[in-house]
Amino acid sequence: MYILVIEDNPDLVANLYDCLEPRGYVVDAAYDARSGLRFAHDNDYDAIVLDLMLPDMDGGEVCSRLRDAGLDTPVLMLTARDTLDDKLEGFARGTDDYLVKPFAMQELDVRLQALVKRARGEHSHESLRVGDLVYDPRTLRVERGGTVISLPPIPLKILALLMRQSPRVVPRREIERRIWGNIRPESDVLRAHISVLRAAIDRPFNNALLRTVHGIGYQIVAVDEIQD
């Protein structure tokens, strides 16, 4: 899991590194709000750990700017303020969860895992549908226009990711990280799996749902949702 920590306390940041990296997290740290905003815009994080009290900007304002920029990365706010009004204000500005200082690192880990699963849709077993393409996560059954489609495991995982994010364009490196973790595949491996996926869900049919956005990534989108 790839996370960004925006926190001005170097001791706390060091503790977060010591706790999270052995658990498989990849951590970037920013010690002020402006650096954190730059990191968040330049990278694709699974979650952001954001301190409410930063030297150059309130954490709530940071969260508002992230949401105004269209970033929906889950945000876990760290704060010493534990009143209901403080929490309501934070949620109104786009915070997804709160953790009151001091906190146990194990609780931080559990809350991050829950936020990321929720964002990815992993908590839901409802069928996914884009146009006439349907995927049932419970049975791993894929159909398009009533025709059953068979897919190998990796293209199936890519399909599920793109359908959950539809109509969003998912960057190549985000797909690679979600499928292969921190071990990045060879440069043409993702392209090969995309070709297998496209051959299965698009080529036998009249309209293509899987689109390549050159220089960025891929999306699955219904024909009537495409905006040129």
Rank of each mutant, 00 (worst) to 15 (best):
S150L: 10
H193E: 11
Y2R: 15
G90E: 02
D202S: 07
V134C: 05
L54Q: 01
N207T: 15
I3D: 00
D68Q: 14
V221M: 11
D228G: 12
G90F: 02
E61Y: 10
L99M: 10
V169T: 14
A200W: 03
I216D: 13
V116H: 05
E176F: 05
E176H: 06
A30V: 04
S124T: 10
V134S: 03
G131A: 07
V13T: 13
V116F: 03
A30I: 03
E61H: 11
R129N: 10
H41W: 11
G24F: 06
D18M: 13
S195F: 12
D224V: 09
R138C: 05
R191V: 12
V100S: 10
E186R: 10
L16V: 09
R67A: 03
G146T: 07
P102W: 08
R144I: 08
L99E: 06
N9T: 15
L20W: 00
L210G: 01
R138A: 13
L133C: 03
K87W: 07
V100F: 11
L76T: 01
Y218D: 06
G217P: 03
I216E: 14
D96C: 05
Y98V: 09
A104K: 14
G181F: 05
I175P: 02
Q219F: 07
L76P: 02
I149Y: 00
M163C: 01
S166G: 09
K157G: 05
L66R: 08
A92Y: 05
V75A: 03
Q227Y: 13
L20E: 00
W180S: 04
V170W: 02
D96V: 03
L52C: 08
A192G: 11
R178I: 11
L76F: 02
V110K: 11
E122L: 09
I220P: 01
I226W: 14
K117A: 14
P167Y: 04
P185H: 02
Q219R: 14
I194G: 02
A29L: 07
L84W: 12
L4D: 01
I158H: 02
L4A: 06
D32P: 06
S187D: 15
D32R: 09
L71M: 15
Q219H: 14
L197M: 07
V26N: 06
F91P: 00
R144W: 04
R23F: 04
